[in-house]
Design a protein around this nucleic acid. Structure first.
Lengths: 142, 142
DNA sequence: GTATATGTAACAATGGATGTTGCATTCGTC
DNA sequence: GACGAATGCAACATCCATTGTTACATATAC
């Protein structure tokens, strides 16, 4: 995995689950499919659980499944659950400048990027998890 | 500097230049203002020059300035000049899977992210460099 | 009690971005 | 023509976020 792997892994997994909503999957299964590691899967899916998108059960027959209807989950939900801020960045690490033009400009640039970030989230809100699942998929139970 | 530093540095610099379009600035000056290194500045601004947004002159009285009207430069121009792909990521590093559901899903996820990326660029096209420059700026010559 | 799952902490490894140095080249000025 | 000042560029070092890994505690079904 390389860039945007968290978002990618999340969408991948959710989309899979949208195909067979009832099925419970272990992090090991998911990791195999996604070509990564169970712990990484748990880390990412844990965020989605915090956001109420997934539920997990410990123990023998445990695993992960959707906590709500796939139709009601948008990419914005996923994006926000993962605390991604692709455009705006982490933001407030600018060392205070002596020059007032600089500080003004810096905050203005940050403002603009925040606006763009917001637009991005709005755009993400338009796509549902069910839109990601391939319509031509004849393998899953759906 | 930390995250999104290239985009941030580029916007910062262009916005500065929009204030005093005639002035030629050295990479050392710009680096000072941005709190970074002349070579880094040249790396980033070099991309903007390739895209025709800036021009640079070597030699004694050399430096950087806008190559076109600040009004005609949008954030999309900058974003694309820098080869940023914030949403879509680098993309094609997925190891080929034996499972056809996987490959289908992976390409579908990539498709969706590409769409979002495109929307982002469209959004960026709506903001001009002159929109970034603070209207309350009484320091620059504009 | 055992097997199997998550939850989590601690640490290692990887990789991209940034910072740095050095030097060739170009251009104005003396 | 020599010199100073700037870009252009390559090579290397450093930093840092992400990912990968190991280990172990905990919970649950059988």
């Amino acid at each position: 995995m390389k860039r945007n792997s968290r978002l990618s892994l999340a969408l991948h997994t959710l989309s899979h689950m949208a195909g067979e909503p009832g099925r419970v999957r272990t992090s090991a299964d998911i990791a195999d499919h996604a070509g990564t590691n169970p712990v990484v899967v748990r880390r990412v899916l844990g965020k989605l659980r915090e956001a109420g998108l997934l539920s997990s059960e410990k123990g023998h027959a445990g695993g992960w499944q959707l906590a709500k209807d796939a139709d009601s989950i948008t990419l914005a939900d996923v994006y926000l659950a993962l605390d991604e801020r692709l455009v705006a960045g982490s933001g407030g690490d600018a060392e205070p400048s002596h020059c007032s033009v600089e500080t003004g400009l810096q905050s203005r640039v940050a403002e603009v990027l925040d606006d763009i970030e917001e637009s991005l989230v709005e755009r993400l809100r338009e796509t549902k998890i069910t839109d990601v699942h391939p319509s031509s998929c004849s393998y899953c139970g759906s």
